[in-house]
């Protein structure tokens, strides 16, 4: 990550650096700035505020992505238990050459023969009598708070203006 001081200094050198970089957006920004020559340096730093910490933001977004997405992906696609044709493990443990030790159903075996049902049961139910739990879904309803751009009251108010 760049040090904060470095960021500031690079902005002070802005005019030279900008000429070197040939991005279209920056050219546009510069053209606007030429119109107000007197306030040049402060304007540039303001206009380029979004560029600050770009690498930090990118790194954070990347880490966030790493933490959440692949885990679910790995959970689903990573551990595919292939079924082997061979009877595994059964033949090895024999008692007195006659009896086989029946392996008590391991977790995998248990799952393989459990109930085939699509219902997703609630394992740990919330206490819906509590006010805070009730509030956690408040905005799922039309009676709850709406997003800025969809709030009917706000849109109406804007229309009147």
């Amino acid at each position: 990550f760049p040090e904060p001081s470095q960021v500031v200094s690079s902005q002070k050198l802005g005019s030279e650096n900008l000429i070197d970089e040939t991005s279209d957006i920056e050219d546009l920004l510069r053209e606007e700035d030429y119109k107000e020559e007197n306030d040049y340096s402060t304007e540039t730093s303001g206009a380029l505020k979004w560029k600050e910490d770009l690498s930090r933001k990118a790194a954070e977004a990347f880490l966030r992505q790493q933490q959440t997405t692949p885990n679910l992906r790995k959970l689903i696609y990573g551990t595919v238990t292939e079924d082997n044709e061979e009877e595994d493990g059964d033949t090895k443990e024999e008692l007195g050459g006659l009896f086989r030790v029946s392996q008590s159903a391991s977790e995998c075996k248990h799952k393989a023969d459990s109930l085939d049902c699509s219902r997703f049961h609630v394992e740990v139910p919330h206490d819906w009598d509590l006010e805070e739990v009730m509030n956690s879904i408040r905005d799922c309803f039309v009676t709850g708070k709406w997003e800025e751009d969809k709030d009917a009251a706000k849109i109406l108010a804007e229309d009147e203006e």
């Binding site: 959440t68 997405t69 679910l72 992906r73 956690s136 879904i137 905005d139 799922c140 708070k145």
Partner: peptide, 12 residues
């Protein structure tokens, strides 16, 4: 598969 955290919103 993308996880969408609920964040501050009161939407479960």
């Amino acid at each position: 598969i993308e996880t969408k955290p609920c964040g501050e919103e009161l939407k479960g």
